[in-house]
């Protein structure tokens, strides 16, 4: 997908939202299996899956600029993200969360979107640093900096700072874990679309 197509797609999206899935699994369980038991089963499965997911979050390292140095520092022994179960992966297909640290440029936007599309659901995005949030110091005049990663992919957690302290990075990981523990398998089917809708509803506000 070239840059033009990506732009066209983004231009079209707000008016053309996908429907939110209405928890198809839970509804199926309620209607076909006399209620209670299978819903309880889903809840147990949720607990196991969510705990597993939150205790072992593999991150797709997406270091794009100076914030990536901070990400390395957080991953190294002093701050040690390993103890939260976060390991950096080089491949999107093995990753749960994408850690976008740095300045996203027009040329990279296409690649970021493609890698995001390759991640298995449920997938999460953390935007680290002012540049990833809004373009940061490049907001006013830059010809090549995308004004925020959230124009290309839906973002779950924002970490402000230029660059953020490692502590805020760790805080973001903890927040991500809280988010994961609230997920239900019944909701996470179609997770990406649901997020997309929320995301564009939010952006549609103006």
């Amino acid at each position: 997908m070239g840059l033009r197509e990506l732009e066209d797609r983004l231009r079209q999206l707000p008016g053309n939202l996908p429907r939110a899935p209405e928890q198809p699994l839970r509804r199926w369980a309620q209607t076909h299996h006399e209620g209670g038991l299978s819903v309880a089963f889903i809840n147990v499965v949720d607990k196991v899956l969510d705990t597993g997911r939150a205790c072992s979050t593999w991150g797709l390292q997406f270091g794009l600029a100076c914030c990536a140095i901070e990400m390395m520092a957080v991953g190294a022994s002093r701050y040690d993200l390993d103890r939260f179960g976060v390991f950096f992966r080089g491949s999107p297909r093995q990753a749960d969360a994408m850690l976008v640290a740095g300045t996203l440029t027009l040329k990279m936007a296409d690649v970021l979107r493609r890698l995001y599309d390759q991640m298995p659901e449920p997938r999460y995005v953390i935007a680290v640093g002012n540049c990833a949030i809004s373009g940061g110091r490049f907001y006013h005049h830059a010809y090549s900096v995308v004004r925020g990663v959230d124009r290309v992919v839906p973002v779950d957690i924002y970490v402000p700072g230029c660059p953020p302290r490692p502590e805020s990075f760790i805080d973001a990981i903890r927040k991500l874990h809280q988010l994961m523990r609230r997920e239900s398998i019944a909701d996470t089917i179609g997770h990406g679309e649901r997020q997309h809708e929320d995301f564009f509803r939010k952006r549609e506000l103006p």
Partner: peptide, 21 residues
Amino acid sequence: PLLKDYEYDRSNPLLSPDPLR
């Protein structure tokens, strides 16, 4: 873009200023 009179493309959805801001 490095010519002094260049203005970036404000209609590009990736570059446009944030209305909220």
